[in-house]
Design a protein around this nucleic acid. Structure first.
Lengths: 324, 324
DNA sequence: GTGCTTATGCTCAGTATAAGCATATGCCAG
DNA sequence: CTGGCATATGCTTATACTGAGCATAAGCAC
């Protein structure tokens, strides 16, 4: 049993660029979800007028996937790329825009960068693409007005009573419908449910229908799904790793920091408790300076304590360990 | 730099078929970290006498990467594959065993399967490969006897005083050396540190040295790193998603469940608190039956409540939300 | 029965969290 | 120069969750 997949799947599939591999070839692409928070909005770097994420073919010349991405981004944006992490590798057959397109393997990355000029080209707010994800001013009306009815119809559309009930339950839990609590981390699940239910343009387009009526701004191919993956990952990560600081200027006030987290999470936070959390975790230290950009009492300036990253190997246990 | 991404990608970012691409070929491989827990040991499916993870070329015929993996595993093992998740995609140039090998993109997956015959071929305990990761009977002696001295030597080997101190700090935090707390989630970081420090055979082999003295059992290429990635992921995931149940038989006692978690985490847990946790989370329900496999009072049998997965969209908040 | 073993139930203190109240410090209008 | 407004910052209370230990229950062997 030397090569396991090999036995199961007869001909080996090596990807030979420009080879004689008949009708279809495989392309390896890198796709970047580049995030920044400016002017209180979480933004993503896009190309072609906001309809696609930056992407390009994987070059063999690069030492690693990650390094390649980093080089490229810094060259393009002239902003240092603070943090990079791999998101997911997609190769689903049924996600391409057309069946005739070559099979693509897309390796996607999430990258965080510092605040920059808000008007810079290519940066669009997340919430253009996912208007239902921004709950900072309460549940967005699009949920009750558009999504909930459409999801209800989708649930009723199922063939068996069991499936109908299962879909209703799942929709309620995912979109916080019947009094369920909103969970901001389910961005990807929500998008996929809307896709399954035929409520997003990408699906309608694929089925040959008019794209009108799709919720949120669409993107090409499965780029919006990749963006959803990135948002979900960042929303989860921000809770247990100090990655927000990659999005902040070197010094900041606690309220600025809070607004940044709020922008990402799409929810408002309790000010005093947020502040207590920051202080007790010792993630920040005062610079001594203050700012009085806006009205009211001037706020103290803080900076991130890089030391903590080395000091403790973060990660809450969550397991009831035995006393040692 | 030649554009990794299409230069500035001014035009549409459509994906071109593999045209005028580089000279070397690219191979896309799937690699599986298949885990099970039998007889109190966490085990991984291997091939070629335990020296490699099962892998094979990606087939275009498959609907998706995940489905391809699933089909293959079920065909090979005749066990249903409970849970599959993507781990990571590797393409680092410097990880292959030989520089002349074709550039390989390895897409790795973590799969969980139910308890099976302990003696079945190909299954090896994780801890053969990572003896320093099993702390169920206290810190394994290999840490103090082999790793700590070797890491100390590695730290001293650095060129500047700053680097030496940084290495010492990092080693202590990662391996719980000077009284620091052990963190079982750092499996990958530990392996990578040992690799960097030249304490594992894979590194020695690459440098052309004798492999003797390497800690833990080695594997081919970077398979042990992939296994470390899988272990780390599972150890983290088990804390916030009910994935243990994928490794358990349909009914089980709470102690069996605890032993399973302990095997994975490599640590012992507090019995009563573990039980309280399980009950208050309502993840399990009594079947009504009891077992008296061993001595002592018979234990109640439980089963997993699949319902909870739909009921709540799990995930602790950890953010100080404002009252809505 | 007694003693051994494992299962299960309960308590108590320490800590973290949610939510609200109170005060401080600036600016600005009058 | 005083009162109103806006923001920053500090403090308090009730409640939940955790770590750790004690106590009891229910089988089995003798």
């Amino acid at each position: 049993m030397a090569s396991l997949f090999r036995e199961a799947f007869p001909p080996a599939v090596s990807i030979m660029p420009g080879s004689q591999r008949a009708s279809r070839s495989v392309v390896v692409d890198l796709i970047a979800v580049l995030a920044a928070v400016t002017a209180g909005e979480p933004r993503v770097m896009t190309v072609t007028k906001g309809s696609a994420l930056p992407s390009g073919p994987f070059e063999l010349a690069h030492r690693s996937l990650q390094q390649g991405l980093r080089d490229w981004v810094e060259q393009q944006t002239h902003h240092p790329l603070g943090y990079v992490e791999q998101l997911y590798t997609f190769a689903d057959k049924d996600r391409a825009d057309a069946d005739t397109a070559p099979r693509t393997i897309s390796i996607s990355y999430l990258g965080l960068t510092r605040e920059h000029d808000a008007a810079e080209a290519g940066w669009h707010s997340w919430y253009e693409y996912f208007p239902w994800e921004d709950h900072r001013a309460g549940p967005p009306p699009v949920i009750a007005r558009v999504l909930a009815p459409a999801l209800a119809a989708w649930a009723e559309d199922a063939s068996t009573a069991g499936m109908r009930s299962e879909r209703r339950l799942r929709a309620a839990a995912t979109f916080a419908l019947d009094g369920a609590r909103w969970n901001e981390e389910l961005t990807l699940q929500r998008y996929e449910m809307l896709y399954e239910a035929g409520i997003v343009a990408e699906r309608l387009r694929r089925e040959g229908h008019s794209e009108a009526g799709g919720a949120g701004r669409p993107m090409i191919a499965d780029h919006r799904r990749i963006l959803a993956t990135g948002i979900a990952r960042l929303r989860a990560k921000i809770k247990y790793r100090p990655v927000v600081f990659e999005l902040m200027p070197p010094t900041f006030t606690l309220l600025q920091l809070q607004r940044c987290v709020e922008a990402i999470a799409g929810r408002t936070l309790h000010k005093q408790n947020f502040r207590r959390l920051m202080e007790q975790q010792e993630l920040v230290e005062e610079t001594g300076g203050t700012t009085s950009e806006s009205l009211g009492r001037p706020a103290k300036l803080f900076r991130f304590r890089h030391a903590v990253v080395e000091e403790r190997a973060l990660a809450g246990t969550k397991l009831p360990l035995a006393p040692t």
